Computed example of a mutant assay.
Amino acid sequence: MPTPRTQDPAPGATSGRRLATDAERRALASVVRLRILRLCLYEALTNKEIADRLGRDPASVLHHVRTLLHLEFLRAETPRPGPRGSTEVPYRATGKSWELDFGTPDDDGSDPATTDTLLRTFLEEVAEVPRSQLQTTRMGLRLNAAHLEEFDQRMRQLMQEFLDRGPDDDGQPVSVFVAVHPEPLAR
């Protein structure tokens, strides 16, 4: 996966990343598309291989693959021979989604790329992982605005540091999901 480019923040961007376009937001407002990107992160897969791993119809998956290709979230790799003389095209994730800032969802939840999609994707993926291989932790903090901003920046820096290292040749693919939220008010 290529190292993300450093960019000046766009007006409205909150993380120093480029503000996503409406089309980019819509493309990533799909659990299926986010799962495709994760599957193709370290391994180039054909449409059929993606469909098989997701347990979905190849024609439906192809629609999602084409959307991700069009917006450069996926790239086609060198075609290879397939079964019975056919040609298969493998696809690999570009890492573009990490470079984008999706902004703050509207209070009414109308933003098509809400964190709800990330949470639903996380829950779908975790449901397929044996419990013995799932590491979770949870904690509560009481932070003022400055310390909350510092915490957020340091978490992002840590993730970026590991991303910049590149994949370990002998490593196994893992996913990290971080959610910071205010505690629900006690009644």
Rank of each mutant, 00 (worst) to 15 (best):
L45H: 02
M159I: 10
A23V: 10
L163T: 13
S30P: 06
E149M: 05
A179E: 12
P167I: 06
M139V: 04
I50S: 09
L41Y: 09
F162Q: 10
D101L: 00
F177C: 02
L28Y: 08
D22A: 15
G12H: 12
K96Q: 12
D164I: 03
E77C: 15
G166T: 05
T78N: 10
Q157Y: 05
L100S: 14
Y42T: 06
E149L: 13
R33Q: 13
D101Y: 00
L119P: 02
R17A: 00
L69Y: 04
R56L: 14
N47H: 02
G171I: 06
L158A: 13
T67P: 03
S60L: 04
Q153K: 13
E150R: 14
P105G: 14
P83T: 11
Q157R: 12
A76L: 08
R156W: 07
E150I: 09
L163M: 11
L54G: 00
L185I: 09
V176K: 03
A76C: 06
R66C: 04
P90G: 10
G95W: 00
P184N: 06
R156H: 12
N47W: 01
V65R: 06
V61Q: 00
E24Q: 15
G95E: 00
D108K: 09
D106H: 15
A146C: 02
Q157P: 03
S175T: 13
L141R: 05
V129M: 08
L163R: 15
R66G: 03
G166R: 00
R187F: 07
S30E: 10
Y42K: 06
T137Q: 10
P112S: 01
R53W: 07
P184L: 15
V174N: 08
T136L: 13
D22W: 09
R5L: 14
T137I: 03
D152L: 08
L41E: 12
E125H: 14
S175Y: 09
G109T: 03
E150H: 13
L39V: 04
T136Q: 15
V126H: 04
T94S: 03
A93G: 02
L62A: 03
F177I: 01
G140M: 05
K96L: 15
G16N: 14
R25N: 01
M139R: 05
R131I: 09
P2W: 05
T117F: 12
G16A: 15
L158Q: 05
D116T: 10
I36C: 04
Y42L: 11
S60H: 04
L118M: 10
L143M: 06
Q160H: 12
G166D: 01
R5T: 13
L119M: 13
E149P: 04
A113G: 07
P173M: 06
T67I: 07
S60I: 01
R5N: 11
W98H: 15
Y42N: 10
S30V: 06
G103I: 00
S132Q: 14
R138Y: 09
T6M: 14
E125W: 11
D101E: 00
L34W: 04
E128L: 11
R75E: 15
R66V: 03
T78H: 10
T115G: 08
N47F: 02
A145D: 14
D152M: 07
E43W: 01
D57N: 10
G166Y: 03
V180C: 09
E72L: 09
L54E: 00
V32H: 01
R154H: 13
S97R: 14
S30C: 04
R84T: 11
H147C: 07
M155A: 11
E88I: 01
P2C: 03
I50R: 05
T14G: 01
L163Q: 15
